[in-house]
Write a protein that binds this DNA or RNA. Structure first.
Lengths: 160, 160
DNA sequence: CGACGATAGTTTACATGTAATATATTCTCC
DNA sequence: GGAGAATATATTACATGTAAACTATCGTCG
């Protein structure tokens, strides 16, 4: 009855020790494969997944944002932002603006070029989403989201 | 009715464009948070997630394995293996053995020290699994695994 | 037997994630 | 008003993932 698909993919000789372990590995492996696919798409346009993520966040906000606010919406730790913004700025996709009131704060602003690149990616990204999980029914997608959100309850509970 | 938990976590102003996008982002975010937790545990023992993964694969196989066979069971691309093995070897957790028949092949072997470290991690790892998703019922865990495996059907179909 | 293609690993260059530390500013409180 | 805590970024060191190019072997086929 059990598919054992993951076990087969990993060429594991022994079955999983627990459904918990199996589910965790399924999350990790699915994520890796999806990230690979999206990474490939973004790379064709000179971006990495993280860089695309920053641009998306800036567009969603609709106005310049401080570094920390951007970092907060990504899972990442703060220090990585500096280099990330550096490279985006070098490509002319964002601009740094030091805030005049609080000189510690640096606002990151999406440039026209950045917005244009984002727009250019909208359709391919949506299509990839459809290609990757379009074969799941709406009910399954909702159930999947529900279960994953339930998974994360433990994380926020223990730490944050 | 919809929880909107992810939307809230990401401080998104706009709702998701599609259930597909929402599910994909849920996968990515859950994975990131879980990886963070496991990464922290492994780091306490001087390992990274990838390094632990290599050791687990070697133990599961029960005998020395060529580099490529190990890489195949991870999602990673080949070149990363070299440095990974380098660092594990430097820590004395694995050993390199050049095959005498086919001198291109290099067997990676788990050392006693590596096996000991793995054994030491078994209980903490299982406990973390329980902490992270132990609050899901057995039915939910199975359904989650089923849905994630169904997600991956598209990937293997199009590419591999 | 000798060139050629395939295979196993390595090297290099670059973007990233993590931790620890440093720097510039601002805030707070006596 | 100034010392010290808190905040926003940056810097550095290291492990990793990706792509592309390189090396060493092996196999095969003429």
């Amino acid at each position: 009855m059990t598919t054992n698909r993951l076990q087969h993919e990993l060429k594991k000789k022994h079955p999983f020790e627990s459904p918990e372990q199996e589910a965790t590995l399924n999350i990790i492996r699915t994520n890796d494969q999806f990230q690979n696919r999206f990474g490939r798409l973004f790379r064709e346009h000179g971006l990495t997944s993280s860089q695309y993520n920053v641009l998306r966040i800036l567009r969603g906000e609709g106005k310049p944002m401080p570094c920390l606010d951007i970092a907060e919406r990504m899972v990442q730790v703060v220090p990585a932002m500096t280099g990330l913004i550096d490279r985006l700025e070098k490509q002319g996709l964002v601009r740094r603006d030091r805030c005049t009131e609080d000189r510690r704060v640096i606002f990151i602003e999406l440039t026209d070029k950045g917005a244009g690149l984002l727009h250019q990616l909208d359709e391919p990204v949506m299509e990839l989403h459809r290609n990757l999980i379009g074969h799941l029914s709406q009910t399954e997608l909702k159930e999947l989201s529900r279960l994953l959100e339930k998974c994360r309850l433990s994380v926020s509970g223990v730490f944050d």
